[in-house]
Design a protein around this nucleic acid. Structure first.
Length: 351
DNA sequence: AACCCGGGGAG
DNA sequence: CTCCCAGGGTT
């Protein structure tokens, strides 16, 4: 069980385990604070295997803060395309530019770094501890799961204020000689051993000090309330082709869901006839008969799109505006497209 | 505090 | 299907 100085042993065993067993990941081969910052933003709500190719491309394309700070928005979005949460990359660029212009580098100061755009409590703690060895808490979902089990913390981890409890716990436990290995050790443990379901307790280096393991409660922690389920929204897409082989695309509003990204004409209705009315009105078209192209569901965090896509030819080609235009297939690929639009594109044009 | 914002993998 | 994931911004 827990001896009086169990915390000392806990941090020793955890950091030793991490230094020995850690996965070899691209962002663990650098001590460049800016590159580590990029990796932490990409890893927000996104899996390691997904991030790796994006991280490699991004650090090659934007090797210095200056390169990213003044990169063209459209090109930046293109390099983020498919990663999701597109405000992350806009905020990252704003934060990097601010840091570059104010400090000329990533500030090695948690309070200054935390003030930058897109840097929240987690990212601040992660970058400061990993890049500079500053003892700061980096509490993500993994850390809350691991510590809720080790310390038998029963607060609802879905509630915002619960994070502070875990930050205090981390500051009580953290290895001040190696905050980087301590924080990453907690996260690595959560990712590979102390998993949400069926944790591998027999492989766990710290099970000796784990309250949940001793009480056989590892499967019932952490406590997490359910969020309400998403609403379903019908989307009727009409991929409109002109007689000379161009396709009509429209740009989404600059705010909100999939801000600024391009799509085939879309109406929020499950009724094709209503969609035709809205889209012909919006783009001044004269549509031929609809041909069913593809039907699928697209899941967002708080919404589900039920997409039904058709293909049609228009004899009238309307007036292109700043937010819509007629594009050849190869031109479409240079626009920033959300995944649902890519699916429709592949169905009507071919991947 | 509640809500918004993507996408992919596991079971 | 459901749940989860190296979260932050806005209101």
């Amino acid at each position: 069980m827990r001896s009086n100085d169990w915390k000392t042993k806990f941090r020793e065993v955890l950091t030793d385990w991490y230094r020995r067993e850690r996965r070899d990941l691209p962002w663990r081969r650098t001590c460049n604070p800016y590159w580590i910052w990029i990796s932490e933003v990409m890893l927000q709500q996104t899996r390691v295997d997904t991030v790796i190719p994006y991280y490699l491309r991004f650090t090659e394309r934007y090797p210095t803060m200056e390169d990213l700070a003044y990169a063209p928005e459209q090109e930046l979005m293109k390099n983020w395309e498919g990663l999701g949460y597109y405000s992350r990359v806009r905020n990252l660029q704003a934060g990097v530019r601010e840091a570059y212009e104010t400090y000329g580098e990533v500030p090695a100061d948690p309070e200054r770094f935390r003030k930058l755009k897109g840097v929240g409590p987690y990212t601040a703690g992660a970058v400061m501890s990993i890049a500079f060895g500053i003892p700061a808490p980096a509490v993500d979902g993994n850390v809350m799961r691991v510590l809720s089990r080790v310390l038998l913390i029963e607060e609802d981890i879905a509630k915002p204020k619960t994070r502070k409890i875990f930050e205090a716990a981390v500051m009580d436990l953290i290895d001040r000689d190696d905050p980087s290995s301590f924080n990453q050790g907690l996260m690595e443990l959560g990712a590979t051993v102390c998993t949400p379901t069926r944790p591998k307790c027999l492989l766990c280096p710290v099970r000796e000090w784990c309250g949940a393991y001793h009480e056989g409660r590892e499967e019932s922690l952490p406590v997490k309330s359910k969020k309400k389920k998403q609403e379903t929204v019908p989307q009727t897409v009409i991929a409109v082709k002109s007689p000379d082989g161009r396709w009509l695309l429209e740009q989404r509003p600059d705010d909100g869901l999939l801000a600024g990204m391009w799509q085939f004409p879309t109406a929020e209705t499950g009724d094709p006839a209503e969609a035709v009315r809205q889209i012909t009105e919006r783009h001044r078209l004269d549509l031929g008969p609809l041909k069913e192209a593809v039907r699928f569901k697209h899941i967002f965090t708080h919404r589900i799109w039920e997409v039904e896509a058709f293909e049609a030819t228009s004899s009238a080609v309307g007036v292109p505006s700043g937010r819509s235009g007629w594009f050849l297939p190869e031109e479409i690929n240079s626009l920033t497209l959300p995944n649902p639009t890519k699916k429709v594109r592949d169905a009507v044009i071919g991947g």
